[in-house]
Design a protein around this nucleic acid. Structure first.
Lengths: 338, 338
DNA sequence: ACAGCATAGGCGAACGCTCGCCTTCGAGGC
DNA sequence: GCCTCGAAGGCGAGCGTTCGCCTATGCTGT
């Protein structure tokens, strides 16, 4: 347990410790005989290289720092898995920092990552998207990439095509003849939720449907929020025939609320979700939704980050990944009586 | 960007770099005047301590390594969040390694963690529970704690009370008068799934119900597995009136399959899940389930690990956390006609 | 006026590694 | 028989810290 070092191996093999280093890293020229002797010695006393010391000397920690929103939700978890997998594929480790919902600790954690000399940082904490200090640190610190907006810009963003994420499902509902289309939104403080709502309005407008604020409710991204929002919507606009729900988790709550109100899905009311969460395939009824490339987003973020690290390029080129509709049983033509 | 070190600060403040170290760590005696001067100098040139060098010298990396199964599922994600939160509360960072489903890379990742000189390791990768090499490494390596069995033992285990996890829901169904109780199991290769199935059999036996293999199907922990398993069960034992599903995700598939077969839940068939997944509150109908303390399990694992690190104790005391039933609308008395 | 003693700060060493350069030595060419 | 050259391996320095110990300075008490 008492850590064995290059020196210990060297003593056992009767060479200088630098020679051991050469052998173990396959660098300089060493005769097969001593090479063999060294390798055996290392094995016998159970040598384990010290990555800390190596990093200190080589000024590269082979580590990525990730700051993420609470990932007990499947969607940020998927991105994180994508990040971790891709990072490892490139021989990098990941240091994880998950934030409280309000994102208040971000600056502190960013500092920790910088002290640990991570080679790069990936942000997935939308709660910090307006934090100027976070933006400043990211711009002056190690290379970084974000999955959401960063205050002040200067950090490349990787994410799903934001327009389509809302336009596809709303157009789908319109094409089925729906005219009273409500939306249950994500937390309206978040840029991504605002944007989806804006696109929803715009697409409706393009089809000659004026904006009706009665048809918009905030579900705060959660199951219970979706449930409550739906009840509010039905209370004041009972002529709704379709709902675009900005994520699948809320859609679970929406389906439950509709069921409680005795509205058949899709006969009385169509529902479209967003994310393509694993449970969406087996809700009652199975949910038509937008497939979001969360896993790929994480992987793409790592690749972009590695590019930036390698080339020291300041090309703030964003990466946009396509989304697609998944048609299931929760959508149908608008009821005839309308 | 060109990393500034203690020496740079020292030069600027006209002191030795060791004195700067003293000030920044609040150790030795330094006059208020120079202290002030040093702090200002550090700030002006943007000094950021190098945790790598510090760890090298202090032989403590303030880092925990976590090896986890794919956490895009909510349940392992919750444990991981619990680990991360508790670790940070104690000033430790977490290095994350997520495994492929077959757990094949575990030994390699364990080596990486050891090279990085983590202060401790937490395992949450049931796929490796029979891997002897993993067990050996954990026993000889840094202090560690596991959320599941480790081949050869010697590693303390933190987890939910395993007996109750199966006994509670089955007893609940029995008390409602059910006699034909099926179970959709987790992946039967896993110890935890085997154990739940064993307890299920035992509780039924205690009530004079002989084991009927027709009533047991493997759902492999997944939504689709639960869906398929239920269809198989109904095909060969249509007199089933209740199903104990070993996790909520599979239960979503189970509810969907029952719906497809025209069986009302809970009137024709009761369903109990396990985990208390967020969606369980809003499935149709809302799911009676066993609340599992995943988050707390992660946090408790960190506390136990820190204990072991601090006391170097080899007390392999396991930690067992209680579980509890959550009653919702998916269970009811057995149909009268039986 | 001098011993005695805090107090402030310097200094050397060590943590475990990598890198570049230097020395040694034997073999081959003329 | 001398020069050259390449292979093998030693050596010093340095990465940025922390820690223990040493020294210089100025103040107190007698």
């Amino acid at each position: 347990m008492a850590s064995v070092s290059l020196r210990d191996v060297a003593a056992r093999a009767n060479v200088s410790f630098q020679t051991v280093s050469k052998v173990l890293n396959g660098k300089g020229a060493v005769s097969p005989a001593t090479r063999q002797r060294i390798i055996e010695a290392a094995e016998e006393i159970g040598y384990v290289p010290n990555a800390l010391a190596r990093s200190l000397q080589s000024r590269s920690s082979l580590t990525l720092g990730v700051i993420t929103v609470d990932f007990s939700n499947t969607t940020p978890a998927l991105s994180l898995v994508g990040i971790e997998r891709e990072a490892r594929r490139h021989g990098l480790s990941v240091i994880l920092s998950s934030l409280e919902p309000d994102g208040s600790d971000c600056v502190r954690y960013l500092r920790v990552l910088m002290e640990r000399r991570v080679d790069g940082i990936i942000m997935n904490a939308p709660a910090t998207e307006e934090d100027e200090e976070v933006g400043r640190l990211l711009r002056t610190g190690p290379p970084s990439v974000s999955l959401h907006d960063i205050a002040g810009g200067g950090v490349p963003i990787v994410g799903a095509e934001s327009e389509g994420t809302a336009a596809l499902p709303v157009r789908h509902l319109l094409s089925l003849g729906h005219r009273r289309i409500a939306t249950v939104t994500g937390f309206q403080q978040r840029h991504s939720a605002q944007q989806r709502t804006a696109v929803y309005r715009q697409v409706l407008a393009e089809h000659g449907l004026p904006h009706d604020p009665l048809l918009v409710e905030d579900g705060e991204w959660e199951v219970e929020g979706g449930y409550a929002a739906t009840h509010r919507l039905l209370d004041r606009a009972s002529d709704i025939t379709a709902i675009y729900v900005q994520n699948d988790l809320m859609a679970v709550g929406v389906l439950n609320a509709l069921h409680e109100r005795g509205r058949q899905v899709p006969d009385d009311c169509s529902v479209v979700g967003c994310d393509d969460h694993p449970v969406a395939a087996r809700t009652i009824p199975p949910l038509t939704t937008v497939h979001m490339p969360f896993f790929d987003t994480g992987a793409a973020a790592v690749r972009l980050l590695l590019d930036r690290i390698a080339s020291r390029s300041t090309t703030p080129e964003d990466v946009v990944l396509p989304v697609s509709m998944v048609y299931r049983a929760s959508t149908a033509s608008a009821p005839a009586g309308r």
